[in-house]
Design a protein around this nucleic acid. Structure first.
Lengths: 359, 359
DNA sequence: GAACATAATGTAATCGTTTACATTCAGATA
DNA sequence: TATCTGAATGTAAACGATTACATTATGTTC
């Protein structure tokens, strides 16, 4: 017997014996019931007697049957896939969120379909519709959109949507986010408590709520301490190392060294790298010449004796919560929902902040 | 008119007007042809006259029709998704491969479905079958398997399989890999040319061909130079920072300082971090106390004036090649293929290697 | 015992495509 | 003119599940 191969029909070849993938009718025949009954056992929709249920389950085991997802989706069933739209897949933070999501989903028999929006609203919209067309049962998105309409449309089409990390307000789409304002307030306070008064901040792209939050926390802390924020101490970054490098270089060139800030709050890891590269080129040392705190912990400086104080965001937890939320929505077949889960970040202190003399 | 919502049937709600998603019959009706003709236009399978082709395309545009993937998959068509199985999604290298794949696919109207195997062969097998069930048109995998059988089975079931980065030999499954042996040979040679003779190596998990390759390149270079490799200079790492830290600490404790190697070849970035943390704790400096080269470039030490010499592997390129290969296979509907594409890595020199006095 | 409710199961239509096969028609060939 | 070719298109049968509706069996009530 030759091993046979047929492309279009996706036969399964097994040790020289060719078997067609079993269908629901094969199960029905073996169990001696109708296909309707088999389907009812699989999806336990209506009552089936214990006795026949057992028979069907045995047949399923014996044939190693699993339903054809395409057929099920076509008719309106579940596909047991959740989509995750990430702004950038080569970004560690986002993938930590993905890992969190995946852990919960796989426990529940779901798969995760990760796609990238490349931080591009156009592409994100495309991606949303593409996921819808692929019959995912829910979509988790760390959104780059400015306009919520596409999300609402998807949601209204019956696919639960959950926002994670990056979010939008005033749309009743459930979300899981960080306590960015509070954490930023606290870490800024840490600088203030150490006697710093001339404090700079390196912002993310302000069109994102997460970036806005971090700046707001910073501003609130400064205001509470009755400290003013110099315009030229506000650096416009983009959550990106090169950009941060340039912004820092600009500041160092523009401002006379005696007027430089004594401390800075850098609002992302990547930007911390860029900032560092710039001040090193200028021969400045941390914390002697400038103190630094960051949102996100940078560990790779530790071999050089520098432990950055900062906010340790818990991305896995964000993913876990988002996944659970999506499972709940699917189960309850509920669409309108405006729950907002906030995941707390911890503050870790190192040696990147110099204690200033009190005057 | 109230806005209507029906979960199971996935209606699309648009500005208070409810429309059912258009089907191929709607297109056929509007264009005044049969559904068969429409299908032929979409998939351009057989000849259709220019005139009717145009009519159909206009109708498709007008209705914003796009085919139902589930129906198409059920009948045996393409789903225009490629699956990528990654050993770990929170790993930057793997996601750079994914980004490379994605860029090629999206240019060709395909989507990428990324799933994680968590370095677990069991889970990878599950994942393979899950992708098969989801009707992906091809699978790209950075494999954790020891036994190629599941891959061959998938391939025989008509789904092109391409290995990327991590590979297996003696199975005719096409693959895209790095020139790990050669690059390792060259970077080791760089140490030798600088007068080093007592050289250590930090290996990855040797069950992986990629790890074996890097060690082989190292060994070849040492042999060519007639240098011997001390048993206790071979450190067993796991491509992981903590593990590398422990292995390094062990070596530092076991070997009297005068017998320590003058240089080391660390075969991954993550392990470089771990190695560094360990030697720092011992108060050793690079390159004064020990020289280092690495496979993979570590940039985050540069602000401290340390530029590691090493192999700059081009992960995006690996992804790009793998994606193109999979597209070719799909197009040619070819299944047997043993092409092996090798992506060259460049060597970048920094200041992490000390020139030893010649004797 | 008749009438009825309820549980358990079966029958068959349906989802939206692809494609084997059938048909039509214009032009080429004998 | 009769026959044949091949291009262009249509008809209708799949693909494998879900589920409304129909049917049968079983127990309950008066």
């Amino acid at each position: 017997m030759n091993s046979v191969f047929v492309f279009r029909e996706r036969y399964i070849v097994k040790k020289e014996v060719v078997e067609r993938k079993p269908t629901i009718s094969d199960v029905a025949r073996l169990a001696g019931v109708s296909i309707a009954t088999v389907s009812r056992v699989i999806n336990n929709t209506t009552t089936v007697s214990e006795e026949t249920k057992k028979k069907v389950e045995v047949a399923i085991q014996k044939l190693m049957f699993s339903p054809n997802i395409a057929a099920s989706a076509l008719r309106g069933g579940l596909s047991r896939v959740v989509g995750f739209i990430s702004p950038r897949i080569s970004n560690v933070s986002n993938m930590r969120i993905a890992a969190g999501i995946e852990s919960v989903l796989s426990e529940n028999g779901f798969s995760l379909f990760i796609v990238s929006s490349n931080n591009d609203p156009e592409k994100e919209i495309e991606t949303l519709y593409s996921l819808q067309k692929r019959f995912v049962d829910a979509i988790i998105v760390s959104t780059s959109l400015n306009d919520p309409y596409p999300l609402i449309q998807i949601r209204n089409a019956g696919i639960p949507v959950v926002l994670v990390d990056r979010y939008m307000e005033k749309v009743n789409i459930p979300r899981v986010q960080q306590n960015g304002i509070e954490a930023s307030y606290n870490i800024t306070n840490h600088l203030i408590e150490n006697g710093h008064r001339d404090i700079a901040v390196m912002n993310g792209p302000m069109r994102l709520k997460v970036a806005e939050d971090r700046f707001r926390g910073f501003r609130n802390a400064m205001n509470s301490a009755k400290l003013s924020i110099r315009e030229d101490y506000i650096l416009e970054g983009n959550y990106d190392a090169n950009n941060a490098y340039n912004a820092t270089m600009n500041m160092l060139k523009e401002i006379p060294s005696k007027n430089l800030p004594t401390a800075i709050y850098v609002t992302s890891e990547q930007m911390t790298y860029g900032f560092f590269r710039a001040i090193s080129e200028f021969g400045m040392k941390v914390p002697d010449d400038i103190s630094i705190v960051s949102y996100g912990i940078v560990k790779t400086f530790e071999p050089f004796g520098l432990i950055i104080s900062g906010v340790d965001h818990n991305y896995e937890e964000l993913g876990i919560r988002a996944a659970n939320l999506s499972l709940n929505l699917m189960e309850s077949q509920q669409i309108q929902d405006d729950s907002c889960i906030i995941v707390d970040a911890e503050i870790l202190l190192g040696n990147s902040v110099k204690k200033m003399a009190l005057f």
